[in-house]
Every structure is written in structure tokens, then in C-alpha cells.
């Protein structure tokens, strides 16, 4: 692909409830922080791609809320109704097409304004799955059980993985501070083995000549019905990952940030991405450290970008997903420019 690089990234601190900021104010906060860090301003931005969920926001055409803080009036803008990692594909395409030189990418999510479990239920098949009361957490439980059974593992591996993520998140000033208990939530997952519901936003600026370039991406979608997938397998994740590595011409990365909605996914996605032990996985704590809706995957990209820009490795992988227990995966390979 034509080189597209990241000129800068910003994210809010993530937490359980941001009553002090509506969507416009949350987007304003993260975009102004991005401009502060990069020395950029709206007049140098050519186009805007946002990511948000109309159901999470309780608002159809949820991007209307962020038009002014994103500087969209009078410009070309669009919205991807998936995780920000997928929105990044469209943003990069806009630049690679030659039509635009710079693109502001912004994603937001506020779990506190709606009811994440009830909203998740509305995402399952309305005829066959919804009536049984399934939601994202119970689906994660099904996946974790299938994963343990298939690998012949004990539930203790879930606790160990969660503890590692919690330890990493404790060192991340932006992570969602929570007091999750080790009580059963969706068998075999305990409350502290499921990613939190967070409020937060993330923004980044794409263009030419930044310190870190987007080297490749891959994405793939799986079947909708849970029964059509083996939840104990990483599904279409390896396909997305292979495509990203192939496009980037990269065999192995130095650091990886993944969207793990449960500690079972921390293990399963690592396997699906084929990441060897030496690769630092989720040094930020990952999604287990903060899960602000459709901003979660874009935060992964931002985390990897910052690490590479600081010289902590030359290549990195960032993963985002949308849908339940990994129906759609997106994998990015980032590379520090030498």
C-alpha cells in the first residue's frame, strides 16, 4: 500500500462514568489533546472518519454529536459503524486514494449512558437467539467454556491471564480503575475475567511523514450464529492476521495490543495471531484494562504507535473487533520509520 503514517495519537483517561462530558465534550477533549501533542489544527485536516455505535449512544446517526468538535462542517466526513480499527481502514484508504492528504480519525464510546447487556442482546438474531436472553457476557462465557474444554485447561488459566492484564493496566495512567471481584459472572468467567464497560475516546491523525507508518492490515468476518462457529477456535482471526502480515511484509512483531473482551480471549486471540512468547502482549493492559465501546480497537493502535515512536520495538500489531466473541476481526501492522 501507499505509505500512510500516523502523525499523532491521543486518548482520554477511561473510566466507568463521565457525567461531566457529553459526546461533543468527550470528542472535543480528545481531539484538542491530539492537536496539542502534534501542533496541528483543524485547518490542516482534510477529512474526518469517525467510529461510534448508534445503539450505545442511544442516538441514530450518532456521529452528529461530534461534527463540530471534529471540525467536520464544510469538509468531507464519514462514519464507520464498527470499532475504530475498522474505521482506520477507510481513513487510510481516503489518503492512499490520493484524494486527501490528512485524515482525523476519532472514536468514542460511553457505556455509562446506556445498558450494555440489553444493547448486546439486541445484537443477536432477533428470531432465534434474542429470546433466550443471551448477551455479550453470556456469549463470552460460552466461548471461555468451549476454549477450556477443547484445550483441556482449568479455569485457573483465566484467572492468571486476568491477573497479568490487571498488573499491566495498573501501570497505565489511562486505564479504567475498577474494583472487579473474583465472583462468578458468566460461567466459567468471573467478573474480573471480563473486560470492563468504560467511557472514553481516542483520536489519531493520519498523513504523510509521521514517525510510525501503517504497514499492512487484514480483516475478515465470520458467521453470525454462534452455533456456526467453533467458539473454542480463533475463527477468522488467523485469516485477518496473515493478510496483515503479508501486506506489511512482516513476519514477526515486537509488541502487540489486542481487544480481549475476556481473559479467555487474551489467550485465544494470542493463539490466533500466532504470537510467540517473546512478543509483549497488551503492555497497556489491553481491553481488559479499558473497553470504551468502538474506541477500544483504536486505542490499541494508539498504544502500539506510541510505543514504537518511543523506540520500544520496530514493528507492532494492533487488533480490533466488532460483534460477539470475535465475529469480525481487524489486524493492523505498524512499523517505525527508520
Amino acid at each position: 500500500m501507499k505509505p500512510v503514517s500516523i502523525l499523532g495519537v491521543a486518548q482520554t483517561k477511561h473510566c466507568a462514568r463521565r457525567d461531566d462530558a457529553n459526546y461533543m465534550e468527550l470528542a472535543f477533549e480528545v481531539i484538542q489533546d491530539l492537536f496539542r501533542k502534534t501542533g496541528w489544527s483543524h485547518d490542516r485536516v482534510d477529512t474526518i472518519i469517525s467510529a461510534s455505535s448508534d445503539f450505545w449512544d442511544g442516538r441514530t446517526i450518532s456521529e452528529i454529536a461530534i461534527q463540530d468538535p471534529a471540525g467536520a462542517p464544510g469538509k468531507s466526513a464519514s462514519k464507520v459503524s464498527m470499532d475504530g480499527a475498522f474505521a482506520l481502514i477507510y481513513a487510510a484508504a481516503r489518503i492512499a486514494s490520493g484524494a486527501f492528504k490528512t485524515c482525523l480519525v476519532v472514536a468514542h464510546g460511553k457505556a455509562s449512558e446506556g445498558e450494555p447487556r440489553a444493547i448486546a442482546n439486541a445484537g443477536f438474531d432477533p428470531l432465534f437467539q434474542r429470546p433466550i436472553g443471551i448477551d455479550d457476557h453470556t456469549a463470552l462465557g460460552l466461548q471461555a467454556r468451549r476454549f477450556l474444554e477443547k484445550r483441556g485447561m482449568l479455569g485457573s488459566v483465566l484467572a492468571e491471564a486476568a491477573a497479568q492484564s490487571a498488573a499491566a493496566a495498573a501501570k497505565n495512567p489511562n486505564a479504567h480503575r475498577r474494583a472487579a471481584k473474583h465472583v462468578l459472572a458468566a460461567d466459567p468467567l468471573h467478573e474480573d475475567e471480563i473486560a470492563p464497560d468504560s467511557d472514553g475516546a481516542c483520536a489519531l491523525l493520519l498523513g504523510e511523514g509521521g514517525p510510525v507508518e501503517l504497514a499492512g492490515f487484514g480483516c475478515a468476518t465470520d458467521a453470525h450464529q454462534l452455533g456456526e462457529r467453533d467458539l473454542g477456535d480463533p475463527g477468522v482471526l488467523p485469516r485477518a492476521s496473515l493478510e496483515a502480515h503479508r501486506m506489511a511484509g512482516v513476519r514477526e512483531v515486537d509488541v502487540a495490543e489486542i481487544h480481549d473482551a475476556s481473559s479467555a480471549q487474551t489467550l485465544l486471540w494470542r493463539e490466533g495471531l500466532g504470537l510467540p512468547e517473546r512478543v509483549a502482549l497488551n503492555p497497556s493492559g489491553g481491553a481488559m484494562g479499558a473497553q470504551p465501546g468502538f474506541a477500544t480497537g483504536l486505542v490499541r493502535v494508539a498504544e502500539v504507535c506510541e510505543r514504537l515512536a518511543r523506540g520500544e520495538g520496530r514493528t507492532g500489531l494492533a487488533h480490533g473487533m466488532t460483534g460477539f466473541v470475535g465475529q469480525a476481526h481487524c489486524v493492523w501492522i505498524l512499523r517505525r520509520r527508520s
Binding site: 461533543m24 445503539f55 460511553k110 455509562s112 446506556g114 445498558e115 442482546n121
Partner: peptide
């Protein structure tokens, strides 16, 4: 299906 979804919208600072 009539899913009941409840929201509490932050008015924000302004």
C-alpha cells in the same frame, strides 16, 4: 420485539 432500552444522557458541562 419491543426491546426496552433505557438511556441517561449526560448534559455535560455546558
Amino acid at each position: 420485539a419491543t426491546p426496552e432500552l433505557h438511556f441517561r444522557y449526560a448534559a455535560g458541562r455546558y
